[in-house]
Design a protein around this nucleic acid. Structure first.
Lengths: 193, 193
DNA sequence: TTATTTCATTGATTTAAATCAAGGCTTTTT
DNA sequence: AAAAAGCCTTGATTTAAATCAATGAAATAA
């Protein structure tokens, strides 16, 4: 039931069976149907969600009511509004299931207790967030320094799974361009090959 | 000598005098003159740098030899090519002093030893990187969802110090626009007020 | 199954930003 | 102090992307 999460944990920070069970006792399962929301803007983010199965996205909405996708999360990835989770402020992101999904939730209370009681958990979290930070920095660097073509190619190479499972206009939103522009970028790439 | 760093540490994770001295024993001071480099693309990033005094920037260079500023770091901020530091791969960023600066270096060896020997250090690092992640996510969200005007206003409001101390064309580079465009954005803002 | 919504593509037009180019003002350097 | 380099602004032109609009295909719901 928590296999994917516990294996990811174990892979970064090896766990004994007892530790495994200990961690498990803090986790909560949650299922979401496609199009259901884990978090709505204005709520407070009460848990970090780890995706055991399925696909989710987080996004924000600007003044023109345009959605901007911040993150996709497939199996093995974590998703939340970290700022809201940590500070208790209301969330600025929405989190929605793109497919029927199974999640592992770590509530704020569980998170804090684990941090206090289990050094390995702190290490795991540190490694997770470090990886997320590096990925984000790479994405930002790409966003300000590479052409749309190259960025799309890089995205497709890095995340072929997402390409398969997520509609194209959402990829466009993630890239910060319109669906029309992405369509033309793709045409250009196909032609040019 | 390490005052700014140790105070920043202490503020996040309170330290006894003994702990303070212990941490200190792992630190290395470094001075840089304006325009000197802490890191060049192709080197391996051997240390995390904390800015005690001065100002630095990190940037990458694209195929057209255009520089793109990734980060500014004034007093109290940390700067490095974290990916290179953690993996030992060659760096993709340059790090340059914008003013005569005084740094505190945490070498990779010191970092690992501190992580192993001092839980409070791991906590400090976790908090630092979490803050950096949230800031980066905010920046990315702004980059894909807000107009240049609004982004510049937000930047100016959040980092007035940087505006004072860094040439405008570097702000433009940081924002991913040309100096000419930023100049016009500013004119528009001034006129419009 | 049919109807409806969602999605991707393509074309025409508009809009925003990059580029090209020049001038004047500061700040460094010699 | 003079020369050089760096910086900011402004204007004219080009280029890339957004917007507007329409169509057909595919997926979803009735």
């Amino acid at each position: 039931m928590y296999e994917v999460f516990l294996n990811a944990f174990h892979e970064k920070v090896p766990l004994t069976d007892a530790e495994r069970a200990f961690v498990q006792s803090f986790l909560m399962p949650k299922k979401l149907r496609r199009k259901q929301y884990l978090l709505q803007e204005g709520d407070v983010c009460k848990a970090i969600a780890f995706v055991e199965k399925g696909a989710l996205r987080s996004y924000c909405v600007d003044d023109n009511s345009t959605e901007h996708i911040v993150q996709f999360a497939l199996e093995g990835r974590t998703i939340s509004d970290l700022y809201s989770f940590l500070t208790g402020e209301t969330a600025t992101y929405h989190i929605e299931a793109l497919e029927d999904s199974e999640l592992v939730l770590i509530t704020k209370q569980a998170h804090e207790e684990l941090l206090g009681k289990m050094p390995k958990y702190e290490t795991f979290i540190r490694l997770q967030i470090t990886g997320a930070y590096i990925a984000l920095q790479k994405r930002l660097t790409a966003a300000i320094s590479i052409s749309n073509d190259e960025r799309y190619k890089a995205f497709a190479a890095a995340y072929p799974e997402i390409l398969q499972r997520v509609p194209q206009h959402m990829i466009a939103s993630y890239m910060g361009i319109t669906p029309e522009t992405l369509s033309r970028v793709r045409r250009k790439i196909v032609r040019g090959k």
